[in-house]
Simulated assay, not measured.
Amino acid sequence: MAKVLIGDDHPLFREALRVALGDACDGEENTILEAQDIDGIKSLVAANEDLDLVLLDLKMPGVSGFSGLVELKQSHPEVPIVVVSATEERGTIREAIAFGAAGFIPKSLGRHEIAAAIQSVLDGELFVPPHARMDDEPTDEEKERLAIAKRMATLTPQQMRVLSLIAEGKPNKIIAFELDVAETTVKAHITAILRKLKVHSRTQAVLAAQTHFSKESIPS
């Protein structure tokens, strides 16, 4: 028996995942929670510390790029999260793993394939589709995006919040007010962000963030 949260804004696909979960657990009665936007997912994860798995769609209300995955991994690093997405681009799959996903299941897989993938993750294994095998040599573009993803994953939740406010064009004084911290604290966070991302300016940091946290960063 497993306790699983399904996060997807399409009711029909949530139902399909329910069926696949039943197959994965040999018909055992699972506890299945559902949410259709990122705020609902975050609330349910916070209220259910005994979750065995989160199945997360990358493209849903309240999410830009990998922002939902990163927020959940930062706030609840102990909860396995599997991305379930219509996107099958190899680079996107590898970036999701770099951001901490325990697996990546394309929505194009059949019911029994999805069930087998879910079971493998519940058994503690990493699942990615065959065309995105992690031992294949990435392209130069994939290497660059993966390097940025790994650096972004080192930011703390507060540093991510500061970076998102910088991306909105807000000055340090306003960022300090919104986060209820001293302006010197904001400056310290920015210094740490630039160091971790290996960039030299706020503009470069924003460009790095847009690589993975804009609606255009995930191919359709």
Rank of each mutant, 00 (worst) to 15 (best):
A209R: 03
V4W: 03
G91K: 01
F66T: 05
E125M: 13
N172R: 10
L109H: 04
H76T: 09
D136E: 15
G169Q: 01
A117W: 13
S64G: 08
V4N: 10
A192K: 00
G100R: 08
D123K: 13
D135C: 09
A116M: 09
M60G: 14
K59D: 09
K170R: 14
E142F: 03
E89P: 07
H10K: 01
Q119V: 08
R94W: 04
F99V: 06
T185Q: 14
D140L: 15
A86K: 07
G7T: 02
D39A: 15
T31M: 07
A149W: 05
E49F: 06
A101S: 10
R151G: 02
D140N: 11
S214D: 04
V82Q: 02
D52K: 11
V82A: 04
D140Y: 12
F213S: 07
D39S: 13
L17N: 02
L17Q: 07
A192P: 06
I218V: 02
E178M: 14
V186Y: 04
I166N: 02
K198W: 12
I114L: 11
G40M: 05
R111K: 06
A47R: 05
V19C: 05
L197H: 03
L17R: 03
G27E: 02
P11E: 04
T203I: 07
I166Y: 01
V82Y: 05
I114E: 04
K170Y: 08
T203A: 15
E49G: 12
Q74V: 09
T211V: 13
L207A: 15
A205P: 00
L197A: 12
D136C: 12
L53W: 07
S75N: 13
L197I: 02
F213A: 02
S164N: 00
G169K: 05
L21P: 06
Q159I: 08
E142D: 14
A149D: 04
I38R: 06
E88I: 00
A115M: 00
D180E: 15
G65Q: 01
P77A: 14
S67H: 02
Q36P: 09
G40R: 09
A2K: 02
L146T: 00
E28V: 09
Q204K: 10
L44V: 08
I218F: 01
L69P: 15
N30H: 10
Q74I: 12
L207P: 08
E88L: 08
R145Y: 06
L55G: 06
P130Q: 11
K143N: 13
D23P: 09
K198V: 13
T184K: 11
A182H: 09
L179W: 14
L17I: 03
A98D: 02
V84N: 00
A86L: 13
G65C: 07
S64F: 03
T184I: 10
P130A: 14
L155W: 01
I93Q: 00
D140G: 11
Q204E: 15
P106G: 09
A116R: 07
K196Q: 08
K196I: 05
S220N: 13
V128I: 10
M134F: 11
N30C: 14
H189M: 10
D23E: 15
H112A: 13
S164C: 08
I190Q: 05
P138R: 02
G68L: 10
A209C: 13
K3H: 12
N30V: 03
G124T: 00
R18V: 09
I218D: 07
H131V: 14
R133F: 11
T156V: 06
I38Q: 12
G22S: 11
T185F: 11
P106D: 04
I118K: 08
